[in-house]
Structure formats: C-alpha cells, structure tokens
Write a protein that binds this DNA or RNA. Sequence first.
DNA 1: CGGCTTTGACCGGCGC
DNA 2: GCGCCGGTCAAAGCCG
Length: 259
Amino acid sequence: MDAIAHSPCKVEAEALQDELKRTRKENETLKVMLEVMGSKVSALQASVQEIGSNSPLSSSVSYYEVYGSIKKPRIEIPMVKPSQIFVRTDSNDKSLIVKDGYQWRKYGQKVTKDNPSPRAYFRCSMAPGCPVKKKVQRCAEDKSILVATYEGKHNHDPFGSPGHSIYSPDSSSRSSRSSIISFPVNSNPSQPGVALDLALSSPTHDKEKPCQSLMEDHTSNKNCNTKAEEYLASLTKDPSFTVALAAAVARSLSTPRVL
DNA sequence: CGGCTTTGACCGGCGC
DNA sequence: GCGCCGGTCAAAGCCG
C-alpha cells in the first residue's frame, strides 16, 4: 500500500526538485542581469551628475512606461504601478501640495505608522473620469522633501494643451520654492511628472534615504541637456535593461535589500 | 454660491 | 476572530 502511495509522491518530489533547480538557475540569471543593470545605473547617475539635471523637465519616465514596454513580465510584480516623485520644499512650508501641472482635489489625510508626517490623498480633478490618484507625504528622513506617489494614468492632457509643459521652469504653476526631482526621458503628455527613483534600484545605494541621495545628486546641478535625454532614451530602448530595471524596481519595492 | 479643504467615521485587507 | 492600519467617504466649514 505504502509503495503504491509513495511512488506518485516520488515523481512529484522529483518534479519539484527539477523546478527548484530551474528556479535557482533563473535566479542566478536575474542576479547577473541585476548586476549589469546596476552598473548601467551607476554610469547613468554619474552621467546625469556630470551634465546636470535641472533643466526643462518636459516629461519623465515612470514605472508604467517601463512596464508598458513589456507585454508580459516574467516575474509577477505586486504593487509596482505607483511611481514616485520627490519634491524639495521649504521646510517651513507645511502644505502637502506638489505642483505638477495637474489639478488635484484632496479627499483625505492620514497619519501613517511609519512616518509621523501626515499623508494626503489627492484625486485628479481636471477631468471628471480621470482615475489618477496621488499620495503626498513628507520624507521621514528629511521633512523638507515631499514624496508624491502617483497611481493610475491620466486620461487627459495637463492644462488640456500639449504645448504647455508642466515642468517648464518658468511655468507659473510651479512652486518657486520647490524643485521636482525627475528624469526627463521621453515625452508623454498623459503622464504627470514622474520620477524614476534610481536610488531604489541601484545596488550601490542602500535603502535608507533614497530621496536624499537623489536630492543631492540632482538639485545641485542646473543643467540637464539633450545628452542626458539621449543616454536615458537609449537605455530605456534597451529591452534587457528595461526588463532588468523593472525587476529590480519591483524587488526593491518588495524587499529592503536585493543583494 | 460653487468648489475646495478639513477631519472624523467607516470599510476592507492583512497579520497574529 | 480580533485588532491594526491604510485608504476612502462625506458632512461641515472656509474661501474666492
């Protein structure tokens, strides 16, 4: 009886072991990919630092765009949709307003466990059916930094006009006291200013103070020119980089430390 | 007066 | 099952 009962179990066990082997191998491959991506990110950060980053922020890349280029990600990634931007404001300014060119209606505020600063919840009010929401909260590490998390995709243009860049430095909608940290890559009028937080995915950075490192890196410089855009565009066009970046971001979000 | 903010209540998911 | 916590609702008040 036992022998009859065990033999299918044995087969199952072998199948599981086989799968485990395959999973390990895949894990190794992903590790290598992550390392490659890490070096690319480091190069990118160095490049951005070199040429500056604070110029006409016409648009940015978001996790959506990263995933939009992937038909079916091999790895299931929970909760990767929200993308973040970091905004430096006056530390005396207690408002949780991130001026990104869209019109937002606040519908709630909460104090969360992990951060003493209250988190504000906004809905896009520029278009009636716009599903976009954003959460704004001060960085726990540096209260002068606002962290805005965007969810969803706008079904309209900012200001209803494509020519009206939401990140124009001269734009009256921009707060003169704040600077939005984001990487201009390609133009997408339906996206808000969404930053790709490379600090999250870079293996050279620890999880702590992702916003601060970005702040130092990108606000200290004033010029971001087409070279950066070209470099970033070439990176985002690279499918392997995109996949690896997406995976790394997802892993960074789900686990504090990857390697 | 209409639209927005504020804020306490409520709800659902999740971990223990 | 219960409590905690994040997210949302909705009434009241404020402001242009």
